[in-house]
């Protein structure tokens, strides 16, 4: 699957705005990204395993409701810095 990386997280990915990965759920995907890019996951998921308030993750443009959301190999996943009123 294709994963779109927001500018705020590209310091972790060496500047890459898109990366390829495979995972069965959002949680599995973020753990895989954290293995590749240490520190990545904690910036967008807190210690109680909640997606941080101003971060959204979409699957084919639909907002994923939780880290348990399932993924398919041809999905487009985007990590988005949410609009927060300004």
């Amino acid at each position: 699957m294709r994963v779109i990386i927001p500018s705020a997280l590209r310091s972790y990915t060496g500047g890459q705005s898109e990366i390829e990965a495979s995972a069965a759920t959002i949680d599995e995907l973020l753990r895989e990204l954290d293995r590749r890019y240490p520190g990545f996951r904690f910036r967008i998921v807190d210690e109680q395993d909640s997606i941080r308030p101003h971060v959204k993750i979409t699957i084919n443009t639909e907002i994923a409701g939780s880290l348990d959301a399932p993924l398919r190999s041809d999905d487009d996943v985007a990590i988005i810095m949410a609009f927060s009123g300004g």
Binding site: A8, F42, I44, V45, R52, V55, S84
Partner: peptide, 8 residues
């Protein structure tokens, strides 16, 4: 931290 990203 940033407005969006968690603390480090």
């Amino acid at each position: 931290r940033t407005g969006h990203l968690g603390p480090t």
